[in-house]
Amino acid sequence: MTPFNAILFKDLKSDFRHGGQFLFLPAFFLLIVMLYPLSLGANLKVLQTAAPGLLMIAALLASLLPLEKLYTDDMKDGTMDLLMLSPQPVSFYTGGKILAHWIIAGLPLVIMSPLMALMMGLSINWPDVLLIFIPATLLFVLIGQIAAALSLGARRGSVLLALLVIPLYIPVLIFGAGALDLLQTENPAKGPMLFLWAGLAFTLPVTPLVTTKLLKMQMD
């Protein structure tokens, strides 16, 4: 067992057996989507025009929820101490943590996304929706990791976390919603969708390193 796997499976198992977030987050996602027709009216035309942005906002909010708990448990019960003293690089830990985080908090949203698009009256191909939601949720997870590590041990962690992370989520929101919007007008949504994937290509390798640095700073 490599440290990466060890952490990945530890996080996944403890979440799944906890009656975990992977069930709760899609419910939250659906709940927010349900609020839109209730607040904007059931007129599908209205919903349709607003749907791309609304779906991205719902995914963004759902991505905020798991962030606060991400590292606090490991910090409190002393696991973090042992990780810092581990002979293996801490990046294994953050890498495993990121993948587990996405499987728990990103993948369920991705799977739900075509269904939600359908419910909001968008008539678009489901593979296209997936191609937008996969990089978008990954970016939410990666940026969220950095913010979670940054605010670890801070007072009023959860409010602070939202304040820190939402401005950084803005480009993902814009390109995600833009891509969904362009899909709707049958314009191939290549541009914004590629921006998302490019953002991912940049963020993915940087995040474990930055998160590791931040965790080390928090342990001092």
């Binding site: 490599t2 952490i7 003293l85 581990s86 293996q88």
Partner: peptide, 8 residues
């Protein structure tokens, strides 16, 4: 298994 693994 997890703890022993990270401690080498």
């Amino acid at each position: 298994q997890f703890l022993s693994c990270i401690m080498g």
